[in-house]
Design a protein around this nucleic acid. Structure first.
Length: 561
RNA sequence: UGGGGCGUCGUCAAGCGGUAAGACACAGGAUUUUGGUUCCUGCAUCCGGAGGUUCGAAUCCUCCCGCCCCAACCA
C-alpha cells in the first residue's frame, strides 16, 4: 500500500493498538476500514477519519479497506460511491483491491440473523414504529417487553423468511435482537436489526425487501473483513455494547474492537452530511463541489491541496474532547503548502490605469522575473513592460492614512520587478472617481535601488495594459458569519455569510497566464493563492478561484487606524 | 431525569505521581523589490471547583459543577 508521507502523531487510539500488539492480540496484525455511507459527498470531517484509518494501517504495516456502508437504500446512489472513490484517491490513499460493500454481505447477514433466531436471541415483532417507541420506555423508565417477544423459534424462522419473501407490508414486522428491555442503555432494549423496506437498492436492485440495520450490519461486516480496530466517532459509544453483543453471539475467533474518537468541527462552517445535503438541495451553494463547501470536492475545486488537508488532519490530533477547530489552522496549512510550491505571478483584481508619461510610446521591454523568491530552481519568466499599465486601485490613495506606503500624491513606489515610478497627476470622472494616474519612471531604478540612495518603501504589483489578459476572479470567504452555526437557536441558514462569494469580472493578469491550465495554482503576489477553476475556466475566458488570501498584516494595521 | 462520554493557554493538544511539550491565533522586533516568506522574543506558578491521600498531584481518592451523546424500522 502506498501512503503519503505525513507525520505520525501519537494518540490514544495508537496507544490502544500498541497495547494490543504487546499482548500479541490478533497475532500482531492491524486492519482498519473507512466505511462511508454513499448518501452524500465526503467532507473534511471524513478526511480526518480517512487519514486516521489509512494512516494507522500504513504505520503498523496493516491494511485499510474501503467499505460502502450501504444498508439503507434511501438516498444511496452510485454517483456518491464514485465521488467517494475519486475523493479518497485524490487525498492520496489506496485500498488496492479491497473495495467492499456491506450490500455484498446481505446474504451472509441474513444467515447470521437466522442463526440468531435459532439461538433464541432474535424475534420477529409485529409492533409498528410508534408502538415500538412506546414500549421502549424513556431515559428514566424501563421499557416493556413486546407481546411478540416470546414467539417460538420456528414461528420466528417462518415469519422472518416470509419477511424476506415480500409477504408483508413495510413497517408491519421487524426483526429484533432479544436483549434486555430494562437496560439503562436504550440501545440495548431489543434493538431492531432488520426492517422491511420496499425500495430499490442501487446495487442489489429489487432483490431484497428487508435490509439490516447499521448496528447489525456494521460489526458483522467488520468481522467478515477481519477488521481488528473499528474506529468510529463518539456518537457510537452508546452502541458499543450492542456491537460487542452481536459479535459475541455470531463471531467465532478474533473479534473486532470498536474505538471512538471525537469528530471534527470547523469554525465558520458546518460539517454534517445532513446539513450539507440541505445546502445543496436548497441551492444555497452551487453544488457539492462549490468552492465554499467543506467537502473534499469543494476544497479540491477551490484549489486546496491533498498535502495541505493531510497535514491539517495531522495537526488537529485525535482525542475524545468535543472540539471546534479554528478555520485559521486549515488556512495556515494551505498557505504553508502553497507558499512552497506555487509560482508567483501578478494579477490585478480592481484595475486602475497608469500612464508613464516619460516612457516612450510604443516601446516595450521585458523583465526576467523569478517565479519564486526563495526557490531559483522554479525558474524565471519574461514580463512585458510598456507605457500604460494597470495597478490595483487599493494601491493608490488620494489621502493616505499613516504608515501607508503605496502610491499617493507626491510619492514614489516601486513596481515589482521593474522601475520606481513617481506620482504626477490624476484624472477623475464626473463622479469624482479617480480613473487614471499619470506617473513618471526613473530609468536608473530598473531592477536596482535608486543610485542616489533614497529609500522607496512601497512595492506594488502591476500588469502591462497592452499585454495583460482579462480574467474573472472569484473571491471566497467563510460560508457562515458565526463560528458555530448549528449551535445557534435560529435556523442555520440565517447565519449564511452573504459575502461568501464575490465575483470580480474585470481583472487583468499577466500575459503568461493566457494558457493557464484548469486546476493550476499560482500566488498572485501581494494578494493570495489562486487556482484556475476546473469547471468554468476555458482558454480565452479565464476564471480564477481565490484559494486563500495572503496573511495581511497591513489589513490588520489599517483596520485599527 | 437513567445510561454513556468529556473537562489542561483564545482554539486544538501533549502530559500516564517528581514539579505544565508543541501547533494555530495573538503581541513585539529583525531581514525583505510580495505590508508575503524567513528569523528571533513574549504568551497557563497553573490544569472545571472543593476537599483528601502523598515528601511531592494536572496525574490517585471523594464530592460538587459544566458541556456533549442516546428514547429513527438513519448511520
Amino acid at each position: 500500500m502506498t501512503q503519503p508521507q505525513t507525520v505520525s502523531p501519537t494518540d490514544f487510539i495508537r496507544e490502544i493498538i500498541d497495547d494490543d500488539l504487546k499482548t500479541n492480540k490478533n497475532d500482531g496484525s492491524v486492519a482498519t476500514r473507512f466505511p462511508p455511507e454513499p448518501n452524500g459527498y465526503i467532507h473534511i470531517g471524513h478526511a480526518k477519519s480517512i487519514c486516521l484509518n489509512f494512516g494507522i494501517a500504513a504505520q503498523y504495516g496493516g491494511k485499510c479497506n474501503l467499505r460502502m456502508d450501504d444498508t439503507d437504500p434511501s438516498g444511496e446512489s452510485l454517483e456518491y460511491v464514485e465521488s467517494i472513490i475519486i475523493d479518497i484517491r485524490w487525498l492520496g490513499f489506496d485500498w488496492e483491491d479491497r473495495m467492499y460493500f456491506a450490500s455484498d454481505y446481505f446474504e451472509h447477514l441474513y444467515k447470521c440473523a437466522v442463526q440468531l433466531i435459532k439461538a433464541g436471541r432474535a424475534y420477529v415483532c409485529d409492533l409498528n414504529a410508534d408502538e415500538i417507541r412506546e414500549y421502549r420506555g424513556t431515559f428514566t423508565e424501563p421499557g416493556v417487553e413486546s407481546p411478540y417477544r416470546n414467539r417460538n423459534v420456528d414461528e420466528n424462522l417462518d415469519l422472518f423468511e416470509r419477511m424476506r419473501g415480500g409477504e408483508f407490508e413495510d413497517g408491519t414486522h421487524v426483526l429484533r435482537a432479544k436483549i434486555d428491555m430494562t437496560s439503562p442503555n436504550i440501545v440495548m432494549r431489543d434493538p431492531v436489526i432488520y426492517r422491511i423496506k420496499r425500495e430499490s437498492h442501487y446495487r442489489t436492485g429489487n432483490k431484497w425487501v428487508i435490509y439490516p440495520m447499521y448496528d447489525f450490519a456494521h460489526c458483522l461486516s467488520d468481522a467478515i473483513e477481519g477488521i481488528t480496530h473499528s474506529i468510529c466517532t463518539l456518537e457510537f459509544e452508546n452502541n458499543r455494547p450492542l456491537y460487542d453483543w452481536i459479535v459475541e453471539q455470531l463471531v467465532e475467533g478474533a473479534r473486532p474492537k470498536q474505538i471512538e474518537f471525537a469528530r471534527l468541527n470547523l469554525s465558520y462552517t458546518v460539517i454534517s452530511k445532513r446539513v450539507l445535503i440541505d445546502l445543496v438541495e436548497k441551492k444555497l451553494v452551487t453544488g457539492w463541489n462549490d468552492p465554499r463547501m467543506p467537502t473534499i470536492a469543494g476544497m479540491r475545486r477551490r484549489g486546496y491541496t491533498p498535502e495541505a488537508i493531510r497535514n491539517f488532519c495531522a495537526q488537529i490530533g485525535v482525542a475524545k474532547n468535543d472540539n471546534l477547530i479554528d478555520m485559521a489552522l486549515l488556512e495556515h496549512c494551505v498557505r504553508e503548502d502553497l507558499n512552497e510550491r506555487t509560482p508567483r505571478v501578478m494579477g490585478i483584481l480592481r484595475p486602475l490605469r497608469v500612464v508613464i508619461d516619460n516612457y516612450p510610446e510604443g516601446q516595450v521591454e521585458t523583465f526576467e522575473c523569478a517565479n519564486h523568491p526563495q526557490r531559483p530552481e522554479m525558474g524565471t519568466r519574461e514580463l512585458p513592460f510598456s507605457r500604460e499599465l494597470y495597478i490595483e486601485r487599493e494601491d493608490f490613495n488620494e489621502d493616505p492614512p499613516g504608515k501607508y506606503k503605496r502610491l499617493a500624491p507626491g510619492r514614489e513606489v516601486r513596481l515589482r520587478n521593474s522601475y520606481v515610478i513617481k506620482y504626477e497627476s490624476m484624472v477623475k470622472d464626473e463622479k469624482g472617481e479617480v480613473i487614471e494616474l499619470h506617473c513618471t519612471y526613473d530609468p536608473a531604478t530598473r531592477n536596482a535601488p535608486p543610485p542616489d540612495g533614497r529609500k522607496v518603501k512601497g512595492v506594488i504589483h502591476w500588469v502591462s495594459a497592452e499585454h495583460c489578459v482579462p480574467a474573472e476572479v472569484r473571491l471566497y470567504d467563510r460560508l457562515f458569519r458565526v463560528q458555530d452555526p448549528l449551535s445557534e437557536s435560529e435556523e442555520f441558514t440565517k447565519y449564511l455569510n452573504p459575502g461568501s462569494l464575490e465575483v470580480l469580472d474585470n481583472c487583468r493578469v499577466e500575459s503568461g497566464l493566457k494558457g493557464a491550465q484548469p486546476g493550476s495554482r499560482y500566488q498572485f503576489e501581494r494578494l493570495g493563492y489562486f487556482c484556475v477553476d476546473p469547471e468554468n475556466s476555458v482558454p480565452g475566458s479565464l476564471v480564477f478561484n481565490r484559494i486563500v488570501p495572503l496573511r495581511d498584516t497591513w489589513g490588520k494595521i489599517s483596520g485599527k487606524v
